[in-house]
């Protein structure tokens, strides 16, 4: 074999060209190795163009559209007016926006309360063989379509659903009771679908806590409750924060849950956007609602970022 021609370069970078290689080895090797920043930008360009064209420019367009006006037959008149945002500030819309914030917050909170003991169980109480299975079982409903998750609850809660059938047969009810179309059914649907988003980051945070730290706390005389409150809970905080943001943000834009498990009385921001774009064909107003959604998303991420910074500066 040839002698090693490569100097001990930094990060696998070659500084000299090896003589006597087959000709197809040589061209474009600067591109593969990334010898210049240009090579890196060039290789990144297909993926970044994809995102820039199909995501960044549509979002920019939506922002511009939110200042436009609607003409006859849904025609868009480009202008700079705040009329759409003025319309959003009407009580009818404000109610829906407030409801969306409340439902999203409630969903995140309920997911935290239900998910924390579950994540604790998987991280600390389950034996390692079963752990994989439990995590897999947690992710499975999450990987099936949201439609399936919603459909399940339609069968259970509906007027001709399982609970009604059981209660009628047992004589608890004399006429079917509608569990659907209530805040309860919508929040239940949201909690059911978004629960894994809370449990997985919580599990990741709990799993990272060194067992020796917990033992040390016990050795120093702290009881189970004190160890939990003073050691485990503070260390699981990053998991709580990312779980909350992972649930809160998509809940703001969810429209399927309220469409099937709720009704006009429980419609959320996502339903308004859906309605303005597809049924009412008032795209500028829909765009303004979308811009509002993105504003709420960004303030959520901002608070999340601050929590994270605080965490890292404290450690």
């Amino acid at each position: 074999m040839e002698p090693a021609v490569r100097d001990a370069g930094v990060e696998g970078e070659r500084t000299s060209r090896a003589p006597g290689k087959r000709s197809w080895d040589e061209p474009l090797s600067w591109l593969v190795v990334g010898r210049t920043p240009l090579a890196s930008h060039l290789l990144l360009s297909p993926a970044s163009l994809w995102v820039l064209v199909l995501l960044v420019s549509p979002v920019t367009l939506l922002t511009l559209l939110s200042f436009a006006k609607i003409g006859a037959y849904g025609r868009i008149l480009w202008s700079f007016s705040l009329a759409n945002f003025g319309q959003i500030m009407r009580p009818a819309y404000l109610w829906v926006i407030g409801r969306t914030l409340v439902y999203a917050g409630a969903t995140a909170l309920i997911c935290l309360l239900l998910g924390f003991p579950a994540a604790y169980y998987v991280a600390f109480a389950a034996d390692s063989k079963r752990k994989h299975l439990l995590l897999f079982a947690l992710m499975l409903p999450f990987w099936t379509s949201a439609l399936v998750a919603i459909y399940c609850w339609l069968i259970v809660l509906g007027r001709e659903g399982l609970i009604n059938a059981l209660m009628l047969r047992l004589g608890i009810l004399s006429t079917p009771f509608s569990f659907l179309n209530t805040p309860f059914s919508v929040i239940l649907g949201l909690v059911y679908f978004y629960l894994p988003y809370m449990v997985l980051p919580l599990y990741a945070a709990l799993e990272k806590i060194p067992r020796t730290l917990i033992e040390a706390s016990h050795d120093l005389g702290a009881g189970g409750l004190k160890t939990f409150l003073r050691v485990i809970l503070p260390l699981s905080w990053p998991g709580v924060a990312s779980g909350a943001i992972l649930i809160f943000v998509p809940c703001l834009g969810d429209f399927l849950t309220a469409e099937f498990l709720g009704g006009p009385r429980t419609y959320l921001l996502g339903n308004l956007i859906d309605n303005q774009f597809l049924a009412a064909q008032n795209w500028p107003l829909g765009a303004a609602l979308t811009v509002l959604l993105m504003g709420m998303l960004m303030s959520g991420l901002y608070f999340y970022g601050r929590v994270e910074v605080e965490e890292t500066s404290r450690v």
Partner: peptide, 24 residues
């Protein structure tokens, strides 16, 4: 910048991508 850009499709709610692509 690139790493952040490639994460965007995960961070932006799907409904925003949907109506954005439709208008685009």
């Amino acid at each position: 910048f690139y790493a952040g850009l490639f994460n965007l499709p995960l961070m932006i709610p799907e409904i925003v991508m949907g109506v954005g692509l439709l208008s685009f």
